[in-house]
Simulated assay, not measured.
Amino acid sequence: MTLGIVVSLFGLGTALVLLFTLAIYAVPFFVALTIGMWAFETGAGVIGATLVGLVAGVVALFAAQLLFASVRSLVLRAVIALLFAVPAAVAGYHAVLGISALLVPSEAWRHVFAAIGGFVVGVSAAVQLAAFAGAGAQPMQVTVGRRDAEFAEGAGPDQPRLPSPSTARLTAPSSEPRG
């Protein structure tokens, strides 16, 4: 009896972890399934439709990640994130509703837990999209120079300042041993 409860809780936990991990793939899966079904209905066959659908899903995921990473407008980023978060939230809602039917007797509480679970899954999908796309990762600029060098006069704030030729002299090493 106790072992059955532990195994059930472990299986439930594993299902929830998979749900959160795979939430970002709801839209690419839908795209892959739709394109794959279209390819099958137009005569591509099972193998051809599967390959076409798989390629379409992968392209959809990477195109969204690339678009999210390259767009700097917060409004457009929010729209792209919502395109991934809303279907994931709907899938999360129904998954938690189905799982809660095993554990919660009250219908009202099942819907409350499902709404919370759907919201969390949707947020998880948006965060994963941002993480995969490398959002917020800005290239670092490194400036190397000598502290005591004289800089060229007249350089504006956006122009690099180079040391003048008179201060960039290095002394030649001596061939005499130190002692």
Rank of each mutant, 00 (worst) to 15 (best):
F84P: 00
E107F: 10
A95V: 13
R110L: 10
A64V: 10
L103C: 02
Y93H: 12
V55E: 03
S100D: 11
I99H: 02
F62K: 07
S100A: 15
L103S: 08
H94G: 09
G92I: 11
A88C: 07
V52C: 07
L97A: 13
F68G: 02
H94L: 15
L76V: 13
A101C: 02
A95P: 00
L82Y: 00
A89F: 07
R77Q: 15
A95Q: 09
P87D: 12
L54S: 13
L82I: 11
L97S: 02
F62G: 01
A89W: 02
L76K: 00
A108T: 14
A56G: 09
T50R: 03
V59M: 12
G98K: 02
V79T: 03
R72G: 04
S106Y: 07
S106A: 14
W109C: 00
L51G: 13
L67E: 08
L67D: 03
R77K: 15
F84G: 10
A63S: 12
L83Y: 02
A64I: 06
F68M: 13
E107N: 11
A63C: 03
A81L: 10
P87A: 12
R110C: 08
L76G: 01
L76Y: 06
V55M: 11
V71I: 15
V79W: 04
V58Q: 02
S106L: 12
V59S: 05
A89Q: 05
L97E: 10
E107Y: 06
A81F: 09
H94Q: 10
L67I: 05
L76I: 13
A63G: 03
V59L: 15
L51A: 14
W109I: 14
A64H: 09
A101R: 11
V90L: 14
V71Q: 07
L103R: 01
R110F: 11
A63I: 03
A85I: 09
P105D: 15
G57P: 04
G53K: 06
L74R: 09
F84R: 00
V71F: 09
A60I: 02
A88D: 03
V75G: 04
L82F: 13
H94M: 09
L83G: 15
A69H: 12
Y93I: 10
V55W: 04
A81E: 05
S70H: 03
R77H: 07
A88Q: 04
W109E: 14
V52E: 03
H94F: 15
G57E: 08
A63Y: 10
L103E: 06
S70V: 08
S106C: 06
G57Y: 05
L61T: 03
A81C: 09
G57A: 10
L83H: 00
V58P: 00
V52Q: 02
Q65S: 12
S73L: 07
V75I: 13
A56I: 09
P87N: 09
A69D: 06
R72F: 06
G98E: 07
A78P: 00
L51K: 06
G92A: 10
V58K: 01
S70T: 13
